[in-house]
Amino acid sequence: MSRGTGKAVRRTTSAMIASLDAEGRETREAPFGHALVALAREREEIVGLTADLAKYTDLHLFAEAFPERFFQMGMAEQALIGAAAGFAREGLVPFATTYAVFASRRAYDFLCLAVAEEGLPVKLICALPGLTTGYGPSHQATEDIAIFRGLPGLVILDPCDAVEIEQAVPAIAAHPGPVYMRLLRGRVPVVLDRYDYRFEIGRARLLREGGDVLVIATGFMTMRALDAAARLAEDGIETAVLHLSTIKPLDTETILEQCRRHPLVVVAENHSRIGGLGEAVAALLLGEGIAPRFRQIALPDAFLDAGALPTLHARYGLAVEAVVRRIRGWLEE
């Protein structure tokens, strides 16, 4: 608070601790770590690996519970993914953690050839997806999905909240092939508990009905879309929210069914507008000859600023107010 910004902007979400917990919503602590520990009690073949980021990917809980099943690879992401492939070759199910930037930018070749080409069950769990840290481009994985979507056989998950992460962990372990999950870490918001939600790889779920606009949202943008829908409803605007946490493989059936029913489709994602869910949905709709008005809420094709998350979410259009404003604008076009 040394800048003395006074009462106008309370920048308690520092660039240091990236978290979505400062919004007054119920949270759960380290849902991935706790879920993995619970699952590992039943499944002995699960092992944990990290590249010097156990504490920052909630894997420290697993390391404490199963020290003999935890393998520290040091700050070496290529060795991390290569070694994870080795574990998988030997019949184990490795959960490997790092930050999304390092996995996607530095270790891609290893994920491609050592893991995906051979369909090995390596589970890559990566914190700081998209704009969930104020550290700037070195830590903001704004293009990780664009990088990974072209990898044949890789399941890509972008969960919304703690509930979904907890449910996803057993499904990820049970999946026979490689999986990449964008991780929300630390105190993670609870959103889906009121929707009787059941996570399934490859399944989208309509969380809210509404005839004016359909928002297809992924990751924490589903939380923002639901909040925005509640505000728009105050003005009589009915917003449907389709939550889609599996970016690949796409639930094409559900997407097409919903898009056929709506004249305006908005895809909302915590990712660059290039190469993410928006483009995937657009290609699907074009291929099927379905042509609603199509709009994207996504990060710009740019290296983003450093700063506090609320500031940056407002600046780049991921904040609830920004979502409300833009949907209202598109409806008035």
Binding site: Q78, G82, A85, G86, R89, C112, E117
Partner: peptide, 21 residues
């Protein structure tokens, strides 16, 4: 045992296999 060819991948995989064994 592995798909080589992207040179430099063998030893990291070997490390994982040796740890796993």
């Amino acid at each position: 045992e592995i798909s080589g060819g992207s040179l430099g991948q063998g030893l990291p995989i070997a490390v994982g296999m040796a740890l796993a064994l």
